[in-house]
Nucleic acid binder design. Structure first.
Lengths: 187, 187
DNA sequence: GTCTATAATCGGATAGAC
DNA sequence: GTCTATCCGATTATAGAC
C-alpha cells in the first residue's frame, strides 16, 4: 500500500472514531506512518484528504447494502437480511456519524457524498418496497418512500441508542421492532 | 442570570452546535461574556461544566417528552403527538448528538445522563404501548419494548437523515412511515 | 469572584533542503 | 516524494494580583 493510500485509510479510520473536528493532520500522519511533507504533497490539506476518505467510505457502504438488496428471497427477506446483517454497532455508522460534524455539514463538497448515500439507500429501499407491494408480498396501504425512510432511520437511530447505552441491545430491539411492524404487513 | 448560569447555558448551546470535542473553554467564555478566571472559579474545567450542561439538557428533554406522553387521547394519539411535535430538525437532537462524541461516550460521568435519558424514553414508550395493548387499542402481537426502541430510533435516525439532506423532509417521511406502520396495528 | 499573565501543547499549514 | 524546520493562533489550563 503506497503512502497516498495509507493516508486515506488512516483518515477513514480516524473520521469513524473521532469525527472530522476531532481528527488532526498530525494524527492522520502518525497513523499512516507518513511525514507532514508527504501528506501535503499528496493532498492540499485536511478537507481534501477527508473528501477522498468520505467518498470511499460512502461507496463501500452502498456496495455492502447492495449485496443484501440484490440477494435471494422475497423483498421482506432481503430487507430483513440487510437489517440483521453483522455490524460493528458500538462503533456507529461511518457515514451517519459525519452528519453530526458541523464542519462536514457546512461544506457542500464534504456533505455531498453523505447526502447521496442516504438518498440512494432510501430510494433503493423504496423501490424494493414498491416491488413487494406490486408482487402482492406486502400490503398495498404501505407507503414505499415513507417506509424506506423509516427503515434507514431505525438503523441510524439504533446506532445512537447503542452508543448511549454502551450496548448493542437497543439497536437489536429497534431492528426487531421495525421488522415486527413490517411483517404484519406481509401476507 | 448570574455568571455560573450563563456559563452553563453557553455550554449547552455550544455542545448542541459543535459537540464536546468542537467546543473550547474559550468559546464558552466568550459566549457567556465571562473571563477565564470566572469559569475556573465556578467549575473545575471543561468536563465539569459539560456535565452540568448535559444534565440540564437531558432533564429538559425528558420533561418535554413527558408533556406529550401524559397528554390526552389514546396511546397512539399521544405517541403521534410526540412524534409530530415541533422540533428544530436540522439542529439535531441535543442529547443524541452527544453519542457521536468519543470523549463523552468514553467518560462514564458524561455518558450517564445520555444513557439514562434514552433508557427512560424507551421505558416510558414501552409502558404506553403495553397500556394500549391491554386496553385493546393496539394489536396484542406488538412487542412493547422492541417497538418503543423502534420509535425512539426513528426520531434519532430521522435527525441524521435530515442533516445529511440539509432538509427536514426525510425526517418527516421517517415519522410518517413509522406512524403508518403503527396505525395498522390499531383497530 | 473576576481579572490578566503565563505556559505547554496542539492544530493546520508553509518553506525549503534533500 | 519525503524530510525537517518553522510559523502562528488555539487549546486547556495554572498563578497570582485586584
Amino acid at each position: 500500500m503506497d503512502t497516498s493510500e495509507r493516508l486515506i485509510e488512516s483518515t477513514r479510520a480516524l473520521l469513524w472514531e473521532r469525527g472530522y473536528v476531532g481528527t488532526s493532520p498530525k494524527a492522520i500522519q502518525q497513523r499512516a506512518g507518513a511525514g507532514q511533507g508527504s501528506m501535503y504533497h499528496h493532498f492540499s490539506g485536511k478537507p481534501d484528504l477527508a473528501l477522498a476518505a468520505i467518498r470511499r467510505t460512502a461507496e463501500e457502504m452502498r456496495a455492502l447494502a447492495e449485496r443484501q438488496f440484490s440477494g435471494p428471497g422475497t423483498v421482506l427477506e432481503r430487507i430483513s437480511a440487510y437489517l440483521l446483517r453483522e455490524r460493528e454497532v458500538l462503533k456507529g455508522c461511518p457515514v451517519g456519524r459525519l452528519t453530526q460534524d458541523p464542519d462536514v455539514v457546512a461544506d457542500p463538497d464534504l456533505r455531498r457524498p453523505v447526502d447521496e448515500t442516504f438518498a440512494w439507500l432510501r430510494d433503493r429501499l423504496a423501490g424494493l418496497l414498491a416491488e413487494g407491494r406490486d408482487r402482492g408480498e406486502l400490503d398495498a396501504a404501505l407507503d414505499p418512500a415513507a417506509t424506506a425512510a423509516t427503515v434507514v432511520a431505525v438503523l441510524q437511530g439504533g446506532y445512537v441508542l447503542a452508543r448511549a447505552a454502551d450496548s448493542d441491545e437497543p439497536f437489536r430491539q429497534a431492528v426487531r421492532g421495525v421488522l415486527g411492524l413490517l411483517e404484519a404487513h406481509a401476507r
